[in-house]
């Protein structure tokens, strides 16, 4: 028998709401009405048109917390994915032409098994898990998303990084003809991100291929992306084509763009504000009132040890 010990980062099962209810975004409506706000937001279009392909053989993962999940509609229509445009609804509108299959991932750098691997060969040897994580955007909004993926650490081990591999660098695909946002240098393409090796090996780090039991849609970073729930969303790089093991800290796109605003670590931290806005609170998509932001987005038990002795005000 599997005994599951509740972690502080878990959310009470009493908070679970059936999918039909949260799809309606009723909670927002009610609180908004109570607050005397005339925002009678109606229902969006039905989401059938957006539905992806079902993923088989998913097991419930260890970190399946049970907080009220953000509706599929919101998760797939409110996205920051500048490759498809800078408005939140640009990715869903502009990503139709993107071809996520077939897909290969290049593995390079300090490891024993570099090469170009088919998407299936990267993922297939592992058990797909569903993990319900909080997602905290650096812009002070948040969601709860049931991701499907495999532990990044397990995948990394198969490529046998050498002792020189201190960091892992990730790279998003560049395809301006399919990604209209890349036609202009809003950010320096390709989008790049990086982690310290121990961060990448942390059990929370998820190499993600789906959400809500279905394959990732283009606007969510199909076919393969990172999900790092204790870091701001921009660290969770999308549509990955290259993973490189490096000796030195790799560059990260937003850090290059504005180093004083976005650090290499980008850990969720309510005590360290973004220079232009407070990080103390966040708005959960679908809710009216802001909620307190939790240290490491509520995953301190799992990740705080990674940063002991590190000045988080300096290494934000």
């Amino acid at each position: 028998m599997l005994i599951r010990i509740a972690k502080p980062s878990d959310i009470k099962s009493s908070e679970i709401t059936p999918k039909s209810v949260f799809l309606n975004r009723r909670k927002f409506l009610k609180t908004a009405a109570v607050a005397g706000v005339g925002l009678a937001a109606g229902q969006l279009l039905p989401s059938e048109a957006l539905a992806g392909r079902k993923l088989d053989g998913i097991v419930k993962g260890n970190f399946a917390t049970a907080e009220e999940q953000t509706s599929f509609m919101s998760v797939t229509s409110y996205n920051n994915f500048y490759e498809f445009g800078t408005d939140k609804n640009d990715p869903v509108k502009n990503s139709e032409a993107f071809k996520a299959k077939p897909w290969t991932v290049e593995i390079a750098g300090k490891c024993e098994k570099p090469g170009t691997y088919a998407f299936e060969d990267v993922i297939k040897p592992h058990q797909l898990e569903e993990r319900i994580y909080r997602l905290r955007c650096v812009e002070a909004w948040s969601m709860v998303v049931p991701w499907v993926g495999v532990p990044l650490g397990d995948v990394i081990k198969r490529f046998e990084p050498t002792s020189k591999a201190k960091f892992v660098a990730f790279e998003t695909i560049v395809r301006p003809e399919e990604m209209p946002g890349q036609k202009r240098p809003i950010l320096p393409w390709p989008y790049v991100e990086g982690l310290r090796m121990d961060e990448a090996m942390n059990p929370l780090s998820l190499l993600t291929v789906g959400l809500y039991g279905e394959e990732l849609l283009n606007q969510n970073g199909a076919p393969i992306r990172l999900v790092l729930p204790w870091k701001y969303g921009f660290k969770s790089i999308k549509s990955i084509v290259k993973i490189t093991f490096t000796e030195k800290e790799p560059p990260c796109t937003w850090n290059q763009q504005a180093a004083h605003e976005y650090g290499f670590y980008a850990n969720v931290n309510p005590q360290v504000d973004h220079p232009r806005w407070s990080q103390a609170k966040e708005r959960r998509i679908g809710e009216f009132f802001k909620r307190e932001t939790l240290m490491f987005n509520g995953y301190a038990d799992e990740v705080a040890a990674l940063y002991s002795g590190l000045d988080l005000k300096k290494y934000y």
Binding site: L39, A40, A41, L44, M73, S77, K88, R283, I285, F288
Partner: peptide
């Protein structure tokens, strides 16, 4: 507001 055209984050949109 009535038709849901404000999207997933209606407060930001407002």
């Amino acid at each position: 507001a009535v038709s849901g055209g404000l999207g997933a984050n209606p407060i930001e949109a407002t």
